[in-house]
């Protein structure tokens, strides 16, 4: 299963981005293979509609779960209809690596 984690930087040492639609990078982690893919977010500086555009980007990668600090109003119903799970994790200090570690050790 693929999990998307919003990240502030390009490495696994970066912290979790507290926004979903305008996060800097998406880290897409595959729980079965352990593979990691880092995507820059093209909607970072979008005037509006960053959320739905980011959902499309993430959904095209067949992600089933998203970990982020916060999700916008437009996104929630959209992700619900796509059956993608949202995990709101409000810990700005935690790194992407620690989230991956948590996902592996449950």
């Amino acid at each position: 299963m693929k999990v998307a984690i919003t990240s502030t930087g390009q490495s696994l040492e970066s912290t979790i981005d507290q926004r979903f639609g305008r996060c800097a990078f998406f880290v897409i982690y595959d729980t079965e293979t352990g593979g990691v893919e880092i995507l820059p977010n093209p909607n970072r500086d979008a005037e509006e509609g960053a959320g739905p555009a980011s959902v499309q980007l993430v959904a095209s990668k067949e992600v089933k779960k998203i970990v982020s600090g916060e999700f916008g109003v437009k996104i929630k119903s959209l992700l619900d209809s796509l059956k993608i799970q949202m995990v709101v994790y409000k810990e700005p200090e935690k790194t992407v690596k620690s989230v991956i570690y948590m996902l592996n050790n449950k």
Partner: peptide
């Protein structure tokens, strides 16, 4: 445990 919130699409 980790004070996260999550939803259940199913």
């Amino acid at each position: 445990g980790c004070s996260c919130l999550f939803n259940q699409p199913e």
